[in-house]
Write a protein that binds this DNA or RNA. Structure first.
Lengths: 212, 212
DNA sequence: CCGCTAATCATACGCTTGTATAGTTTCTCG
DNA sequence: CGAGAAACTATACAAGCGTATGATTAGCGG
């Protein structure tokens, strides 16, 4: 009648921590923050409930670690996808594509973002992480914008660059949001193309999607 | 030492329901969905805990009612702010302003949106409400875009209108999101002006902010 | 091969949750 | 004006929560 005792299998601490973090992200993305209970987390990670407090001093600490890991993975993936060489315009087009296709643009990612935002507001450490990553991305975008405009013989001032970066970032964020909220309301690469033409219009350039 | 018994004060059922709904929205916006417990809700509404089940058959029903009320208020406010007469371009400019200033663009509104999105995914009724309101707003925006473009001698096709509406909506959503997430990162009417110039660029028009 | 440490498991504890129920007050109407 | 219904309060209850605590197993140096 009673469930058999879970078998003992030792593993690398790093693996265990990663499993717990992955479980947190899965649960939060799927069913919201209140679904990530210690029991559900341990279950999803295939561990017993005590492990979470063995590797993290509290549940909140695990949640914070999961948030950090998620943000880092997101930014790393974006950075890695940018070709080191290539024209500034190609790099700009590429970051638009990456930002508007999975795994960055995703119902799952949007869901996670929504789940974390309240914790971001309350916890100063999480808030700092959030702000830093957000501005880091916008600065990256701004530098690409400045380079692309300069290359096409239309240099922009510093204040203008800021405004353009905010505007282009808004386009990306807005399309990311809509694609994540209503994924089946758009054709496969529709958001990517709309993003490309919109940014082109805002900057006065002509960006094009790469062929797949 | 025990708290004194709460005094009896009868009131209009509609007022009571409204008080409970307002309490739900306040708590959710301030501290996230898990802060809206029955005890906290009743307390915030100045009522005893039993009232929530007296006016709503379950807590979930109250949450749904709160979501409906919030969405309706939002859309009604937007609609009401549009001048019935005036040029199409003026109306378009007006909807941009309204969408990017309080109470529509607000940390509170963003917070509420994030709190509700997981319920939207699970509950088909809430999902239907969400989808309907989203598309209704986008259709309104699209009709204004079509009219404004036509007025300035640049008629757009049906498919083009859809794409432009999605793009402009994305600009508004993105700026709304950024303003809500980092309110102090922008100057007072900065987002409004960026929205105006961005939409202008996308549509090939020249919209201008009204003076306050 | 034994015993020790650390990893892992199971379970208990106090608290909060949503819901159900019993008790109290106010209002209405015959 | 006095019963009876309806609004309202308070409290009880089972379930689930995060945390704490022992019991159990695996690896490793003597």
């Amino acid at each position: 009648m009673s469930a058999p005792r879970r078998s003992f299998t030792r593993d690398d601490p790093e693996t265990r921590r990663a499993a717990l973090i992955a479980a947190v992200l899965d649960l939060m993305a799927e069913d919201g923050p209140q679904a990530a209970t210690v029991r559900a987390i341990a279950d999803a990670a295939g561990l017993s409930q005590g492990m979470i407090r063995h590797y993290f001093s509290t549940k909140e600490e695990l949640i914070n670690a999961a948030y950090q890991a998620h943000m880092e993975a997101q930014l790393t993936a974006t950075r890695a996808s940018l070709p080191a060489c290539g024209t500034a315009m190609a790099r700009l087009a590429r970051i638009i594509t990456v930002s508007l296709t999975p795994p960055v643009s995703d119902p799952r990612t949007l869901s996670l973002w929504a789940a974390f935002i309240h914790m971001i507001r309350r916890d100063p450490a999480m808030r700092a992480t959030h702000e830093r990553n957000y501005l880091r991305f916008r600065d990256l975008l701004e530098s690409l914008i400045v380079a692309a405009c300069a290359d096409s013989g239309r240099p922009v001032s510093k204040v203008e660059a800021r405004r353009l970066a905010i505007a282009c970032n808004a386009v990306l964020d807005g399309l990311w949001l809509e694609g994540g909220a209503l994924p089946e309301a758009f054709a496969p690469r529709e958001l990517e193309q709309i993003g490309m033409t919109s940014v082109s219009a805002i900057l006065g350039l002509t960006l094009e999607c790469e062929a797949t």
